[in-house]
């Protein structure tokens, strides 16, 4: 696992049924592109998060294929529909096989 990987998610704690809400996610990750060289001129191998998904109560919101052109500390902002009370599940997939997860519960008034 890459060092100091920490997901952050901003989602509303409550919504009305059928409401569209904006979600922001940020994860600390170097996103080593595979294009850089170290001090000795050797290529630094690629090591990135290559996929990000957001689900709500098991249904897909967004599924992003990520390439080395995504900046360090990957950031996404997108909209989700909240049909009923439940939970978001966010998953980031690292090249090295690590999986980072975060979740956020949403109540419906």
């Amino acid at each position: 696992m890459a060092d100091n990987v920490k997901p952050r998610v901003k989602a509303p704690k409550s919504a009305s049924a059928g409401e569209v809400v904006t979600i922001k996610t940020l994860i600390s990750h170097q996103m080593e592109s595979g294009q850089r060289k170290d001090k000795d001129g050797n290529k630094i191998p690629r090591s990135i998060i290559n996929r990000f998904t957001a689900e709500y109560n098991g249904q897909m919101v967004i599924d992003v294929t990520m390439e080395p052109a995504i900046s360090t500390n990957p950031y996404f902002e997108f909209d989700a529909t909240i049909p009923e009370a439940g939970e978001f599940k966010f998953t980031w997939y690292d090249d090295d096989g690590s999986v980072y997860e975060d979740s956020k519960a949403v109540s419906v008034a």
């Binding site: 100091n4 920490k6 952050r8 940020l26 600390s28 500390n73 950031y75």
Partner: peptide, 12 residues
């Protein structure tokens, strides 16, 4: 603060 990547390090 959410858009500010510097806050990652504040969390750490």
């Amino acid at each position: 603060d959410f858009d500010n990547p510097g806050m990652i390090f504040v969390d750490q």
